[in-house]
Write a protein that binds this DNA or RNA. Structure first.
Length: 817
RNA sequence: GCCGGGGUGGCGGAAUUGGUAGACGCGCCGGAUUCAAAAUCCGGUUCCCUUGCGGGAGUGGGAGUUCGAUUCUCCCCCUCGGCACCA
């Protein structure tokens, strides 16, 4: 193997040439083709935060490999890209740099597109979407108006974080330890009217469909099921003297005799009425309003409460039950009021102990009430007529009793809440509503859409939305009566844009409607890839939108994403890489130094896609070294073998057979790893092993070269999704003039996989003592004989009686003595 | 707190259906090549004992099922993601 006259590997040159070839041939631009099987491969589109970070590179390389692989399998592959361009960081940058959010966003998109192109990703750029453009978001407004008319949209009061100094609404992320991140002022809960989408109307279908989605990871489906949180319980009215009936919701009516108090949320009407003549309760409610309202804070904060002064009547015993106001009761779940059973609910138990409320046992189950609540279900005790019933029996009997009385009913509840889509921010899609003193909230008529967001704006220090202070934007006339009216100045949650972009990619330039007929050719997405952090919100909203689009007659399928691959986070110093944490790794420096192919290869080799990846710069070197070696090996092979196509000899010798076995075993493994398992790290490892085998092979005659040529060519085909530029260049060096990415995936030759002999492990009492080589067709008895004949095996049997011999064909023999 | 992941050599990871733990790569050690270096090539590399042959231990911790457990069950610890206005 001569290494003289080596052609040096120059990634920059090789990559430029390959990209030029692809561009000239427009090979990644696709149109519907009824004669080909379609394949829609999609990565979650990026927020244009500045430059690409390693999480992006990982995500896009994943979809890239899957897209190129399926193209080589003969499918019509759609692989689009775009930007989730609205969002808060643009406003922060605007305040910091005194530029308009639009300008900053467009500059970022330009920079990131250049980086994506430099990485050689096989996108159909003609379908690029930027969600901040009116020709995209107008259809979102259009859909909202449609849903408004159908009653799927409503307005109600909801809580926001209010910064009393900056006089502005803060995102949860902008509240740090209960204080505004800019002003440092103590943030308070404030209630303002906001728009909601009735996702709860679809709760049942969103839940039920999960049973029919085999292409999604179980973990994500479980998270979504738990998030939707369907439960069956009883809604019961407790009569409160001086107030009226208060409804509670419980999934454990069997514990009703154990109720020793009730608890209502601080925002509950009873709490508000009770506070009218009660100074300390007023102070308590005020204190509660300063507590963070997010669920994690609610769950971990100190449980506090105060007696409201009201008492309810127990619906079965007619005894007085005190009503407490408690900071841990959620106004947004159930009825905002709960019955408390300290004997059988741990949170109620701790609260009762703290405030010295009675704890009684009404369920007979394992546990010690002096230590903790007994939460297991069991037989009812101390429950009068209901004693002796089990959970289901008690549930049914109680339900029948209260339904007959008209004071209770069986109720299916969901933890899922309707989707609040109003944001009091500037850089988002304007909500197409006009407020008229006479006509109320009126949707903007279709022919007046889009409501365009003015882009030339300036921010002041407080971060308040410029359009809220811009009469040119909000002053308008009522579409119904023509009177002076005011435009809605809130914008949509950016999850709105990301809930349907996958569908718009199928017809991004369609001007006559939201989606064209092309949508049903491409949809649903065959493979969706993105961060696990989106397991619930984005993926649930997108599923909801798809069902809404279906019910609007815009798509025919029920679900948007057939297969989901959730990639793990790219971590740096143990935490999610994000601009706000300042722990990002800039892939550009790596591309400049090693080339795109190395960066792509390494990002796939470092870890399996679903696992989080702790980034380290070491190891990139290894990927680069591997590609260099491949480059040198193939050039050296061509120097020896030429570029003519060599014909495999009919009769292979032992070494040739063994090499072909390796080649076809690798094709089998890589095909499985890419196509089925999505374990690209092991696919690369297998290709490296094959490279080692081909490199070590000592060729002495022309037939050797034929076997090697088959091996190298197969390897180039298999590595081309990972390192497409180098693969293209080497493909040409091997004598081909065509585009490698349009070739078909290598075929497995089953005859090459046939083996005569295999290695088996021999254990004595479960410990490895020998390995033996046996003929494939040897019987179990013969294998046992060979195993027992081994000297080291005999040494450990040591004359002891053999109790049992287990032979697992082609794997292992275990001798038990 | 609740829901869902993860924990394997010095490091990233492999072991696909309960069957040889550590593939592949990084790093490190030794050698070849070189005036020298880089690059490249060859060999070694879980830990402990042993010149070697070989032996013992070992997959976060503890228990269990099994001829056999990284893999299954139970308990615990650590860690990451999500928790509805970050995207």
């Amino acid at each position: 193997m001569s290494n003289d006259n080596r052609i040096p590997y120059d990634p920059r040159q090789v990559e430029m040439e390959a990209q030029k070839l692809w561009d000239e041939n427009k090979i990644f631009e696709v149109q519907p083709d009824q004669n080909k099987e379609k394949y829609y491969c999609l990565s979650m589109f990026p927020y244009p935060s500045g430059k690409l970070h390693m999480g992006h590179v990982r995500n896009y390389t994943l979809s890239e490999i899957i897209a190129r692989y399926h193209k080589m399998r003969g499918k019509n592959v759609l692989h689009p890209i775009g930007y989730d361009a609205f969002g808060m960081p643009a406003e922060n940058a605007a305040i910091k740099n005194k530029t308009a959010p639009a300008k900053w966003t467009y500059a970022n998109m330009e920079e990131m597109s250049a980086q994506l192109k430099r990485l050689g990703f096989a996108y159909d750029w003609s379908r690029e979407i930027k969600t901040c453009q009116p020709d995209y978001y107008r259809w979102e407004q259009w859909l909202f108006v449609r849903l408004f008319k159908e009653g799927l949209v409503y307005r109600k009061d909801a809580v926001v974080n209010w910064d009393p100094v900056d006089q502005t609404v803060l995102a949860n992320e902008q509240v740090i330890d209960g204080k505004g991140w800019r002003s440092g002022a103590e943030v308070i809960r404030k209630t303002i009217p906001q728009w909601f989408l009735k996702i709860t109307d679809y709760a049942e279908e969103l839940l039920a469909s999960l049973d029919n989605m085999p292409g999604w990871p179980d973990s994500v489906k479980t998270m979504q099921r738990n998030w939707i949180g369907k439960s069956k319980g009883l809604e019961l009215d407790f009569e409160v003297s001086g107030f009226g009936a208060v409804s509670i919701y419980t999934t454990r009516p069997d514990t009703l005799y154990g109720v020793s108090y009730m608890a209502v949320a601080p925002e509950h009407p009873l709490a508000i009425q009770a506070a009218l003549n009660n100074e300390s309760l007023t102070a308590f409610l005020k204190q509660c309003s300063k507590e963070q309202s997010n669920e994690a804070a609610m769950a971990t904060m100190e449980k506090k409460g105060m007696y409201s002064g009201f008492d309810a009547v127990h619906p079965l015993t007619n005894q007085k039950v005190p009503v407490w106001v408690a900071n841990f009761v959620l106004m947004t779940y159930g009825t905002g009021a709960v019955m408390a059973v300290p004997g059988h609910d741990q949170r109620d138990y701790e609260f009762a102990q703290k405030y010295d409320l009675p704890i009684t046992q009404v369920i007979d189950a394992e546990g010690d009430l002096s230590q903790s609540a007994i939460v297991e279900k069991g037989i009812l005790i101390n429950s009068a007529d209901y004693d002796g019933l089990d959970f289901q029996g008690a549930f049914n009997a109680m339900a029948a009793h209260f339904e007959a009385q008209g004071t209770g009913r069986v109720q299916i509840n969901y933890r899922l809440r309707d989707w609040g889509v109003s944001r009091q921010r500037y850089w988002g899609c304007p909500i197409p509503i006009i407020y008229c003193d006479d006509c109320g909230a009126v949707p903007v008529p279709e022919d007046q859409l889009p409501v365009v967001l003015p882009e030339d704006v300036a921010f002041d220090e407080t971060g308040g939305s410029p359009i809220k202070k811009d009469p040119g934007f909000y002053q308008t006339t009522c579409p119904k009566c023509g009177k002076e009216a005011t435009r809605e100045t809130d914008t949509f949650d950016t999850f709105m844009e990301s809930s349907w972009y996958y569908a718009r990619y199928t017809c991004p330039n369609f001007n006559e409607g939201m989606l064209s007929e092309e949508a049903d050719y491409w949809l649903p997405v065959d493979q969706y890839i993105g961060g696990i952090e989106h397991a619930i919100l984005h993926l649930l909203y997108a599923r909801f939108f798809h069902k809404v689009l279906r019910d609007q007659g815009l798509v025919k399928s029920d679900e948007p994403f057939n297969n989901l691959l959730t990639q793990g986070m790219v971590l740096k110093d143990g935490a999610k890489m994000s601009k706000s944490k300042g722990n990002t790794v800039d892939p550009q420096a790596l591309i400049d130094r090693y080339g795109a192919d190395t960066v792509r290869l390494f990002s796939m080799f470092a870890a399996p896609p679903e696992q989080s990846l702790e980034w380290s710069d070491e190891g990139v070197e290894g990927a680069s070294r591997y590609l260099n070696r491949l480059w040198n090996q193939i050039h050296s092979f061509v120097a020896r073998a030429g570029t003519d196509i060599l014909v495999l000899p009919k009769n292979l010798n032992k070494e040739q057979k063994s090499l072909r076995l390796k080649v076809h075993q690798t094709i089998e493994k890589v095909t499985l790893d890419i196509g089925e398992r999505h374990t690209f790290n092991t696919a690369i490892a297998a290709m490296m092993e094959l490279t080692n085998a081909l490199q070590k092979y000592n060729d002495t005659e022309i037939s050797d070269l034929a076997v090697l040529q088959e091996g190298w060519q197969s390897l180039l085909l298999m590595i081309s999704p990972f390192a497409p530029h180098m693969a293209q260049s080497l493909w040409q060096s091997m004598g081909h003039n065509d585009l490698l990415c349009e070739k078909t995936w290598p075929e497995i030759d089953k005859t090459a996989l046939v083996q005569d002999e295999i290695d088996m492990a021999v254990q004595v009492n479960g410990k490895l003592r020998a390995t033996i080589t046996v003929a494939v067709n040897m019987s179990q008895n013969e294998v046992e004989g060979v195993a027992l004949a081994d000297a080291n095996v005999q040494k450990f049997i040591d004359g002891k009686p053999i109790r049992k011999v287990i032979v697992v064909p082609k794997k292992i023999v275990n001798v038990v003595v």
